[in-house]
Each structure stands twice: as structure tokens, then as C-alpha cells.
Design a binder for these strands. Structure first.
Lengths: 165, 165
DNA sequence: ATCAACTGTCTTGACATCGAGATAGGTTGC
DNA sequence: GCAACCTATCTCGATGTCAAGACAGTTGAT
């Protein structure tokens, strides 16, 4: 089945036959798929009155295990946003009572962000919903294909995640 | 090589062993890779004093071929933004002299957005830069692997691009 | 001890995006 | 012809994000 990127690549080959646009076959699909996923996630979370950015922060804390706390800095590397954005996110989540800010006992510059009980419940509930939706999207592929795809993507993400970028 | 998603999945398996989090192996990588790509693109385009959103619009018009014009509606489906966003983008590009707005002769509700000569040059210059950068990122994979990856991604994007979503 | 360099978090202002609704023009069936 | 519906684009207000810089606290070299 053809997709929008097939059309995009065909158009470039017509307009700029001098260029090799093969990289777009992979990376334009990654960007476009991510945008589609964002929209789908926004819809899935709206049942739980949660925004995608709230989900990202709450689940990062949930994954940390008891006592469900991380520094803003640790949250940055997991969510790939800037520090100003994270400060703002924590403010809003705190105002909603889903997290609380505690002083870091071992570094007086530092802060620890801790999930409240309600925050933990919201994270748990919405994760199940997200997984159901993602499973539906991935039903296009066999289990073996999903494994292959994950492995290929890992080769591309690993350099970003390991070399400090 | 391990990436951040491996750590994320391992954490969920420890914290929520009752859930099957396999979908995250694929889709969390797609989302994170897209964010990394955004940052890399922003950097690559800054040499040409161009923002990623400007690139997206200018190249959509460039791909259309002479006379390099499309309706705002056609630009929407290619760039996956809302109509309000597109109006705003066209306004700003027009103010910079990179596109111009013309009335659609066949539909008086409609508008045609046309690339100026300078807009076409900027699109052509920045495309070459983007491709060079993307090639570097994809050097992690063999040509055959890139082909496989593109094919697998196409299976996921095709439903979004074809069923009106 | 002290000073310079570094780190972690927050502040600020500019700006791009979204969603909902407004407006004007087109289309269809009767 | 005309009424009801549809479509294309734009307007507006709210909001989330970023980049750059401020600030307090920490670390390492001397």
C-alpha cells in the first residue's frame, strides 16, 4: 500500500533527479508517524482527562518505582524537553495535586519531584489505555516484524541516547 | 547497543509485570527518534536561517513543480498541521517574501500559495543540507536494512495516510 | 581556604500551535 | 431559484515550548 511519503519521494525524483533522496524513505516516515501518534495519543488520553505531556511526566515517575521520585534533571533526559519546559510542567502538575516538590536532602540546589497517590493512579490507568491503542496500530505487523522494526529503530536511537546530545 | 527505550521497557516490566508493554518497543522509539530528528533538523537549518516549519512548507511547494503553487488545504495534508496554523505560516512566509498568496481563479473561496524565486532557492539549498545530515544518521544501517525499515514503517503509516484521519 | 568553573533549577519573553467558531462561497435536490 | 448543507480559509484566545540568562550551590585546583 502506498503512503504519503511514497508520493513525496516520487515528486522529488521528478523535480530533483540530480539528488539521492533515499534518506527520506526512512526519516520522513518516522516524523510523520510520530505526528500521527501524537494525535492518536491525545485522543486516547482525553478519556482520562490527561494531556500527553502530563502522561510523559507521571509515567516517568511511576517507572522509577517507590518512592516514585526523580529530579527535574532526570525527567529532562527521559522526556527530551528543555529545563524551562520541565519547570513549567512540574508547576502545573503540582497545582493539580498529581506531584509534589521536595528539597533534595543531598544537594541544596536540587529538588525531587514525587508522585502523589492520585498521580500514581492516573499514571497506571492511562498506561493501560495507551497500550491498547498502540496494539491496534501495530496489528498491521506480525510479531516477528515488530521485533525487526524495534531492532532497526534501536540502532538509530542508540547514538542519540548514549552520546550526550 | 542499549538505548533509553530498553531502559524504559525494563522499568515497566519490573514495576508492572502484569502488563505486556511490547508495543512500546516500537512506538516509543518512533516518538523519541522524531524528537531527536527535530532537534537535529533545527540545527541543520539554522545555517540557512530557516526554521523546520518554513522548510516543510517551502519544500511542499517546491515538490509540486512549476508553477510551484498549492492551496492551503493541500499544504495541510502534507504537513499535518491545523488550518489555523497554516494560515499563520503562510502569513509569515509571505511577510518574508518567500511565498505569495493568489486568488484561486476556479474557486472564489480558495487561495493559491506560490513560491517566489527566493523561496525556491532557499528550498533547494536547504534540502541538500538536510539530506547530508540524514545520511549521516542513517549510516548506522546497511542499504538493505534501510530498505527493510522503510517498508516496515510504510505499513504503519499507510492506514493514517489513506483512511482520512 | 579560596576562587574559578561548573551544575541544577528557575525566570522571562517571544513565538508557534491548537481548537473552536466565523465567514464567504459552492453544491445538491427539489 | 432557493434552502440546506458542505467546503476552504481565516480569526481569536489559550496554552505549551523554547532559548537565553539568572541564581544558588557545589567541586576541584592550588
Amino acid at each position: 500500500m502506498e503512503d504519503e511519503v511514497d508520493r513525496l519521494v516520487a515528486a522529488w525524483r521528478r523535480e530533483r533527479p540530480d539528488l539521492d533522496v533515499e534518506p527520506l524513505e526512512v526519516l520522513s516516515r518516522v516524523s510523520r508517524l510520530a505526528r500521527h501518534l501524537d494525535r492518536a495519543r491525545r485522543l486516547a488520553f482525553s478519556e482520562h482527562q490527561l494531556e500527553p505531556w502530563e502522561f510523559d511526566v507521571l509515567t516517568a515517575l511511576r517507572r522509577a518505582g517507590t518512592p516514585y521520585q526523580l529530579s527535574p534533571g532526570q525527567l529532562l533526559t527521559q522526556t527530551l524537553v528543555t529545563s524551562g519546559t520541565m519547570t513549567n510542567r512540574i508547576d502545573r502538575l503540582a497545582k493539580k495535586g498529581l506531584v509534589e516538590r521536595l528539597p533534595d536532602p543531598s544537594d541544596r540546589r536540587g529538588v525531587l519531584v514525587r508522585l502523589t497517590d492520585e498521580g500514581r493512579d492516573r499514571a497506571d490507568q492511562s498506561l493501560a489505555g495507551l497500550l491498547a491503542q498502540e496494539r491496534a496500530i501495530l496489528a498491521e505487523l506480525s510479531r516477528a516484524q515488530r521485533g525487526e522494526l524495534a531492532a532497526l529503530l534501536r540502532q538509530l536511537t542508540a547514538p542519540f541516547d548514549n552520546i550526550p546530545g
